[in-house]
């Protein structure tokens, strides 16, 4: 306020013009994002079943305490979420890299393949989950028919505590490997030509070129792709909800499903809120770690 110079006038002017552009979005954000976050955060220190007669009861950090120290089901759900995410994303990365290298460059039907590869990503998860549910069906499903016809023993797929999580990972891999392929393809096309030319002249074979050039140059893209997939995989909901509801037993209960159960089946809104806050912290923490990695390694085609 003391320095009413040209510069502050300018910034103030800039600020008000910027405000005009962003105001509608700011209102939206306050109402639709900030308010719910605030609401959830507040509620996480209370216990409430949604009663119209009793206001939420303040319980301090006891919800957090229960979840973190005294709820084996939550602990299992966290570990399961990590297992699901890690396995799914790791396989998607490897497969995605393989497929991206496979379909990079010219071949007959390239256009068609590049359209088909989009389909699993854009198809409605709930609908496609129903199709998988039918294929997984132990008695009439496609998979067991195929397995038995080529002489293998049928499996239980979603109907067994041992196989259910793996089956869900399979669906996630089918659905999201294409995303990896897409991102890595974009990465591949932006790789500089010169180092590869030089390596070829020096007599480096395909394997050497891949491990010493392609992989390191592609690394930043891979980090970005893994980050995006990790965030989404941690939050996977539609497919799990449609196919198993977290069962059999608790074999596929991830944090997100457990949060849903706490709020909409157990009516423990306070506990559910603290669970969501912890979940948010986990996702945020993981995102920050990745962002840090990306910063460390630098991003060649983005400043």
């Amino acid at each position: 306020m003391l320095r009413l110079g040209q510069r502050s006038l300018q910034t103030r002017n800039r600020f008000s013009i910027g405000l005009l552009f962003t105001l509608p979005s700011i209102v939206f954000v306050l109402l639709m994002i900030v308010y719910p976050i605030f609401y959830t955060f507040t509620l996480s220190f209370h216990e409430w079943s949604g009663s119209a007669r009793r206001d939420p009861e303040y319980v301090g950090t006891s919800n957090y305490d229960t979840l973190l120290n005294n709820d084996p089901r939550f602990e299992d759900a966290v570990m399961r979420t990590f297992e699901f995410t890690f396995k799914a994303v790791a396989i998607e990365l490897i497969l995605g890299l393989a497929i991206a290298l496979l379909i990079n460059g010219e071949f007959l039907g390239r256009g068609l393949v590049r359209v088909l590869i989009l389909l699993p990503m854009v198809a409605t998860p709930v609908a496609i989950s129903m199709a998988w549910l039918l294929m997984f069906e132990p008695t009439v499903g496609l998979f067991n028919e195929v397995l038995t016809s080529i002489g293998f023993a049928p499996r239980l797929w979603l109907g067994s505590q041992d196989e259910a999580l793996g089956s869900l990972i399979l669906v996630d891999i089918w659905q999201w490997t294409p995303m990896m392929v897409l991102l890595l393809l974009t990465g591949l096309t932006t790789l500089p030509e010169e180092p590869f030319e030089a390596a070829r002249v020096d007599g480096a074979n395909a394997g050497q070129r891949f491990f010493y050039l392609t992989l390191p140059l592609l690394f930043p893209t891979m980090v970005t792709a893994v980050l995006l997939r990790t965030i989404d995989a941690l939050k996977t909901f539609d497919t799990i909800y449609t196919m198993t509801r977290g069962g059999p037993g608790y074999a596929t209960e991830t944090i997100n499903i457990y949060g849903y159960v706490q709020s909409f089946e157990y009516f423990s809104l306070g506990k559910a809120s603290s669970l969501l806050v912890i979940f948010f912290a986990i996702v945020l923490g993981i995102s920050l770690v990745f962002t840090q990695i990306r910063k460390q390694w630098g991003i060649p085609y983005n400043d």
Binding site: M32, P36, Y39, I231, K235, N256, F264, V283, L284, S287
Partner: peptide
């Protein structure tokens, strides 16, 4: 980043 069910009741 935020899980979707966070929003339902406040909304």
């Amino acid at each position: 980043i935020i899980p979707g069910i966070t929003f339902l009741i406040p909304w």
